[in-house]
Design a binder for these strands. Structure first.
Lengths: 208, 208
DNA sequence: TGAAATTTACCGAACGGTAAGAAAGATTGT
DNA sequence: ACAATCTTTCTTACCGTTCGGTAAATTTCA
């Protein structure tokens, strides 16, 4: 599509290689902890080659962020095609909880902390366009159909994203079972999957 | 109390000054982005003074982390004294959403990313002892009373912590209102307060 | 032969960390 | 009471390393 072509101009293969090598590094360790040297080693290039394609570290990070959001955005768009609202939410949750998409929270923090105003604005727009937007659209339709209720779509979306962050974080910590007083043996990964998350999101946890 | 004395040995005033100066820096910017020079400037001391009290940057960070957890832990213990489970949860949420306690998520990440195994273990123990534990105890009692249901206390606690992280993150972003398609004008800070969080936690968001 | 892509070799600045000793207050001998 | 001593606390000046970034030359390919 012409419009997407404009948003994501054709990138040189080497530039893509660099971005894809830098992505997991930035996602795992954050902006400052990843050095340019780390990136060029991972991408198997030399430093001036990196600076041939990116003006400085910040621009590299911005491009990595945009790349990530476009990737996740297309996955979310696809996941939003389900039949019922519940199905769509479960598919969305599966995308958000996928290994490759984890740690978005850290990326969001680094974007606000280490990126200048102009580029930050670019990233914020991309975040709402590709990540927040599709989810919010599902929420809005759920509200219109009466399947969801009580809060505006934006709040529901923020909630949903936050839940996926925590599900991922605690789901990966086997340590938790070790220290949790009441859940030893029950706290396995499967219980923190997409279905549980949507169930919790829809029905809450009150008894009676 | 004698026991607490053991857990938190008397610290030299200068050491406390350094820790309290470093705390907001680490919480806002993370481990790597904060330099020793930043800390000594904030604490108004010189570098060798810092290294007189802390063997290296990692030990400083660990002490800062323990300090934070003890602070939040005592606040959480107090908040857990409410009459009903709902009241207790609201008080806990208020503590977690308080300005001073925000960004725990980033601290948790940095603990796992930049701290060696031994110290990491220390921090993980402190996390479960002072933060996770008190909340989980409230959840366990809620389950016993039938006010909560359907999931073990550990999962409920992870959920609750994750919700507070996202409420804080999105609550602080006025930008969100700007880009949210359906909630312009509705997405003010008050709506992302402790009461809303507990309501959402207990009752979910399904319609009908 | 000329533009695009990539390299070797290097730069100043900032990083975490330290050696050596000056202040400062408490402790001691007389 | 008073100076000498000792221990705790804190400073000036510096170290080797790594950081982000670049000048200039070379390879690659059309």
């Amino acid at each position: 599509m012409m419009h997407e072509q404009l948003l994501q101009p054709t990138q040189a293969p080497t530039a893509v290689k660099i971005i894809e090598a830098a992505l997991p590094l930035f996602m795992k360790r954050g902006y400052t902890a990843v050095s340019i040297t780390d990136v060029i080693k991972a991408a198997e290039i030399t430093k001036p080659t990196l600076y041939y394609y990116f003006s400085d570290k910040e621009e590299l990070f911005v491009q990595v962020g945009l790349h990530l959001m476009l990737m996740m955005g297309s996955q979310l768009q696809e996941a939003a095609q389900g039949d019922s609202t519940a199905e769509r939410l479960t598919s969305l949750a599966r995308v958000l909880l996928a290994e490759r998409n984890a740690d978005m929270r850290l990326m969001r923090h680094e974007m606000f902390e280490h990126v200048g105003p102009a580029n930050r604005d670019l990233l914020v727009r991309a975040f709402y366009a590709h990540l927040f937007g599709p989810i919010e659209a599902v929420m809005a339709e759920g509200l219109a159909q009466g399947v969801l209720a009580r809060y505006p779509a934006g709040i529901l979306t923020a909630m949903f994203l936050g839940m996926s962050d925590s599900f991922h974080e605690f789901g990966q910590q086997a340590r938790l079972a070790q220290w949790s007083i009441a859940t030893v043996g029950h706290f396995a990964n499967p219980m923190l999957g997409a279905e549980t998350m949507v169930d919790l999101f829809l029905h809450g946890v009150r008894g009676g």
